[in-house]
Design a protein around this nucleic acid. Structure first.
Length: 425
RNA sequence: GGAGAGAUGACCGAGCGGCCGAAGGUGCACGCUUGGAAAGCGUGUGUACCCCAACAGGGUACCGCGGGUUCGAAUCCCGCUCUCUCCGCCA
């Protein structure tokens, strides 16, 4: 969330940003509710002050007349206070709902735009494979190699679930190990995180755990949800605490399952493993000093590039346009890998993203540092190291061979124990 | 899941319904002292929000969380959560 006062004092910029972000939010309403709230707080505090004075007037010995008068006065104050308190509660409730709709501000260099086509490519690496045969898509390959089973998963769990089988299992584990080892070498603290988180942590990160438009599964009759990403549990790690400024940056890598409802997402671009309800991911998370977050953002992107260069998969990086940034990100880089069977003649498919959320999440979660007596919110960043299901899409499609087999990227063979996967009969 | 014990500031630990934002101690910061250090002495040391140009000043709230009783609650009553111990179950 943004700071109330910031919204009020920068109303024009915030409104402009809301428009650029393609978000349904009303900064003006926030400013009005904020004023209303402050007025009520002012009145309440004034009355409470009088209540306290009235009460302390009864500490000494009094005639029963005086006593009676003070009690009467106290009762009146009590009624008025509780009336205003109820009003305040209503106003604060509305204010909170409204402020949460307001997205983070945007980096001045983030491209203005409404949709994917407005993302700006800032670099690319590798070359798109040139097949001397007609490449098959990963669904077909997975079936032929007997390493992915969608049909049975649909029967057992529903659409957009899958079983990984045989070498597919090792492929997932290899990707996970590869990512974790890379991050360990970068000084990240490795973690396996809970797959369930409390609603208020999830919403602090910027995920709405309830409601029809929510992308995450809420568990009925509880106040918890299945995590959509380890970003939630890693970002909640220091919730409501002060961090030691000397300890920053804190770099964490979290391995978790990710659960997403993906309601309504369908079509050729989300077929197979590309868009599923459950996948495994290694997530990077950084708590940064506010002055360093821009640098840390580049650093996270650098690691993502390193991981995919290691896999020798051709990719491009896009600077995500304002309309695609979502709520918490100040700036976001997406990494897209070439997927030969995406669309008619292949296309770029998102495999990772790195976001600098500045203090947007930290404010809601209450994560601060104290420096020279001044309190500020930390900056929080996240980036994907490996989203396993999408990495598998990319590997299967890019590393397929004419005979139907799939080679394993050399960076992974030490973990898989095999160098290629042959079709089964 | 069952039984019991507890929850107070960075930490330990007092606290009779009004004199408690909270004794005392430890720690920490600054100063004095010292050739330097330790000890000693002195001063200070929470968070959130509101007013305000203000990290100056003023105000309100906060003693696990939420309600209630009362003119007045850290103190009384109710509910919840969490922690610890024991039992059960269990990968």
């Amino acid at each position: 969330m943004l700071d109330y006062r910031f919204i009020k004092e920068n109303l024009r910029e915030v409104k402009e940003n809301v428009k650029n972000r393609r978000v349904d939010a009303d900064p003006e309403l926030v400013a009005e509710l904020y004023d209303e709230r402050n007025g009520l707080i002012h009145d309440i505090e004034d009355l409470r002050k009088r209540r306290n004075e009235n009460a302390s007037g009864m500490k000494r010995k009094l005639s029963s007349d005086e006593r009676e008068k003070l009690i009467e006065e106290g009762k009146k104050l009590k009624t008025r206070i509780s009336g205003l308190e109820k009003e305040l509660e209503v106003v604060e409730g509305k204010l909170y709902i409204e402020v949460l709709k307001i997205p983070n501000m945007s980096h001045p260099d983030a491209p203005l735009g409404m949709g994917e086509e407005d993302n700006r490519e800032i670099k690319h690496w590798g070359s798109v494979p040139d097949f001397d045969f007609t490449p098959k898509d990963h669904v077909e390959i997975g079936k032929a190699l007997d390493i992915v089973d969608f049909d049975t998963a649909t029967k057992v769990s529903g659409q957009k679930f899958y079983y990984l089988k045989n070498e597919g299992v090792y492929l997932e584990l290899a990707l996970v190990r590869y990512a974790l080892d890379t991050l360990r070498d970068e000084g990240f603290v490795l973690m396996i995180t809970p797959d369930i988180a409390k609603d208020d942590i999830a919403s602090g990160i910027g995920f709405n755990p309830r409601g029809s438009e929510s992308n995450i599964y809420h568990i009925e009759n509880t106040q918890v949800c299945l995590v959509g990403t380890a970003e939630i549990t890693l970002g909640g790690y220091y919730a409501n605490s002060f961090m030691d400024p000397g300890s920053l940056p804190v770099k964490m890598a979290g391995l978790s399952h990710c659960f997403r409802k993906e309601a309504g997402a369908a079509g050729q671009f989300s077929k197979g493993l590309y868009r599923v309800h459950q996948f495994t991911k290694v997530e990077m998370f950084v708590y940064s000093h506010p002055e360093e977050s821009g640098k840390m953002h580049e650093y996270l992107l650098g690691i993502e590039e390193k991981i995919f260069r290691g896999l020798k998969l051709p990719y491009r990086i896009v600077d995500t346009c304002t309309g695609e940034l979502g709520g918490p990100a100040y700036r976001k880089y997406d990494m897209e890998v070439w997927m030969p069977c995406r669309g008619e003649k292949g296309g770029w498919g998102e495999v990772t993203s790195a976001s600098n959320c500045t203090d947007y999440q930290a404010r809601r979660l209450g994560i601060k540092i104290k420096e020279k007596g001044k309190k500020t919110f930390v900056h929080m960043l996240n980036g994907t190291a490996i989203a396993v299901s999408r990495a598998i899409v990319a590997i299967l499609e890019n590393y397929q061979q004419k005979d139907g087999s799939v080679r394993i990227p050399s960076a992974l063979t030490g973990y898989t124990g095999f160098t290629e996967i042959q079709p089964k009969n």
